[in-house]
Design a protein around this nucleic acid. Structure first.
Lengths: 110, 110
DNA sequence: CACATCAGTAAGTTGTGGCTTACCGTAAGC
DNA sequence: GCTTACGGTAAGCCACAACTTACTGATGTG
């Protein structure tokens, strides 16, 4: 479970709707901060702050290009979330099956 | 993209650490509210409120059993999140490839 | 029929997370 | 070297979301 802590931070980061919007735009195309700020209902510094959170969560990475910084999605963060989701999905199905069986047993006992 | 709105709500719901904790416990085993509240640092009503949010997000479902309500994970919500994640991952890889190619072109132009 | 257990809702409080404006640093162009 | 574009950080404000306690309503039990 080395991916767990990473997935936790990622989920925390994507809890905010503005950050989800930024995330989706970066999925569509890598962009600089100014370009992201255009078309978003918040100021440019706000976008910077969101990008900082997304970066710490491992969901985003940047490359410098002159004075601009081009942000793009980081596949590693997404991968961690996927694995987290998958493992929980699996254990959810298991747990539900166990639960159903146990219920059935108690039915018979009655 | 019928799963999109669902995935948005799910991500919003899992943004809270306490709700993630509840989610993980339910993945391990379906539980009643009192049992969840034991072992969590918050009151029972707080747990109820969190479960309400998780339920509206399609991540959780309940069945009544006497006065108890047994909560368990709802695979549909998890599935919606997975699909959202996967589609964005795919387009992220596409976009990054396009971006890299374009960068290369500009290199040559210089 | 009490009485206990379980759970949802109401009402009120408070910490904090997301926003703004202002400021500072850095790279590029004239 | 001066100016312009870009972007991160600081400081402060404020709405809201996550709590709490108190109450109400079911269901099961002696």
């Amino acid at each position: 479970m080395t991916y767990k802590s990473g997935a936790m931070e990622s989920l925390g980061a994507l809890g905010d709707p503005t950050r989800r919007e930024i995330f989706e735009r970066l999925a569509a195309q890598p962009s600089a901060v100014v370009d992201l700020a255009r078309g978003l209902p918040v100021s440019r510094p706000a976008v910077s702050q969101h990008l900082k959170v997304l970066k710490q969560a491992g969901l985003v990475r940047e490359i410098s290009q002159g004075t601009r910084r081009i942000y793009s999605l980081d596949p590693r963060g997404i991968g961690a979330m996927r694995r987290w989701l998958d493992s929980h999905w699996a254990s959810a199905l298991d747990a539900f099956k166990q639960f159903a069986d146990q219920q059935h047993e108690e039915e018979l006992d009655r």
